[in-house]
């Protein structure tokens, strides 16, 4: 029996979210006195063995197969399922990323076992095949306490739910190669092409986000927000009311079904602060709400607020910045 962590990496560089999954997996392994194993899929896996050892992994299983050169949800899910069977894993942990959730769902489907996505807490159960988890719902607006019952339990850890930490007594991991049989059908959903992202400030990484909501009133109404964002080296974000109106592209949407932002400052202009918007904005270090309604949820949740018409306030801020810079 073993606890298996499925590791996500980019050409041998371990993903942050996987460090968290490893930490969660180690806690489960320690409390149940079960060895901790890791599974890496694809090339460049050797680069990670030492670090996996520091996280408490005893054996790293390296799956190789021609089909695995590039990502494919079915193929990777099939490898996880095969590893569970070969190693008699009782619990499998992965990161709650797009890929992590997708691969685990495929593995769970193949094995016909339960899968809990985006857990924040995992507790080994009193009974052998039953464990308790707390998991994220509504994109983080709600939590669900649940039980996960089965001879094999699959779960992913929500990003940032646990702090990644190496083992107190770092060990040395042994790498072994794992051979898997894959049927042809799994190659039907392998990545066929790729377009690399152009470097630059993105909504997810920008230090300043100037967000606009229904209060902006039109697509043209965003020009002053663009200008302010430009002065601050930031980008413009928006609410779903704005994307639904066709005023901005969905790539600018902040929230449960948009992007999670974490800027130093979020200026939320004419946004009421619905819970689905808030979950995407709450990681901002500081929030300044600009709203005509002093009772708006965004105003009461923000650290700072200006009560007033954004069409007057936003240009005034830009003018003041230019005045101080002498431009």
């Amino acid at each position: 029996m073993t606890i298996l962590v499925v590791v996500e990496h980019d050409r041998g560089v371990l993903a942050d979210a996987s460090r968290e999954a490893l930490t969660a997996g180690r806690h489960l392994a320690t409390t149940t006195a079960t060895p901790l194993d890791a599974l890496t899929i694809g090339a460049a896996a050797d680069a990670m063995v030492a670090e996996l050892g520091r996280f408490g992994v005893s054996t790293v299983h390296q799956a190789h197969h021609d089909v695995l050169a590039d990502y494919g949800p079915e193929a990777w899910g099939a490898v996880v399922a095969a590893a569970v069977e070969q190693l008699s894993a009782s619990v499998v942990v992965a990161a709650g990323t797009d890929r992590g959730n997708e691969v685990m769902a495929w593995a769970a489907a193949r094995l016909d076992v339960p899968f809990a996505a985006n857990c924040t807490v995992t507790t080994p159960g009193e009974e052998d095949e039953k464990m308790a988890v707390t998991r994220v719902r509504w994109g983080g607006s709600l939590l669900e306490e649940a039980t996960l019952t089965g001879a094999v339990r699959l779960l992913t850890m929500a990003h940032h739910a646990v702090d990644a930490a190496p083992a107190e007594e770092p060990g040395r991991a042994t790498a072994v190669s794992m051979t898997v049989e894959l049927d042809d059908s799994v190659s039907h959903s392998i990545v066929r092409g790729r377009v690399e992202r152009v470097a630059g400030v993105t909504l997810a990484t920008a230090p300043v986000v100037v967000g606009g909501g229904r209060g902006v009133g039109s697509a043209d109404g965003f020009a002053p927000l663009e200008e302010l964002a430009g002065l601050l080296g930031g980008v413009v974000g928006c609410s779903r009311a704005v994307t639904n109106n066709g005023w901005r592209n969905h790539t600018d949407q902040v929230g449960q079904t948009g992007t999670r932002i974490a800027p130093t400052v979020y200026l939320a202009c004419g946004i009421s602060g619905a819970i689905q918007h808030w979950v995407g904005a709450m990681a901002a270090k500081n929030i300044v709400a600009i709203n005509i309604d002093p009772e708006a949820n965004m105003v009461s949740k923000a650290g700072y607020a200006v009560i007033g018409d954004l069409h007057a306030v936003v240009p005034a801020i830009a003018t003041e910045i230019r005045r101080r810079r002498g431009t």
Binding site: A116, S141, E144, T147, K301, A302, V306, I307, G308, A316
Partner: peptide, 30 residues
Amino acid sequence: GLRMVRLQRPAERASTTVILGRGPDAAPAV
């Protein structure tokens, strides 16, 4: 095998909002 026991609201960040001002006059404070 996945069974909900109960729902829970996550802990809310306590906040007191500092009102920087009203209308465009608030710009210098911002």
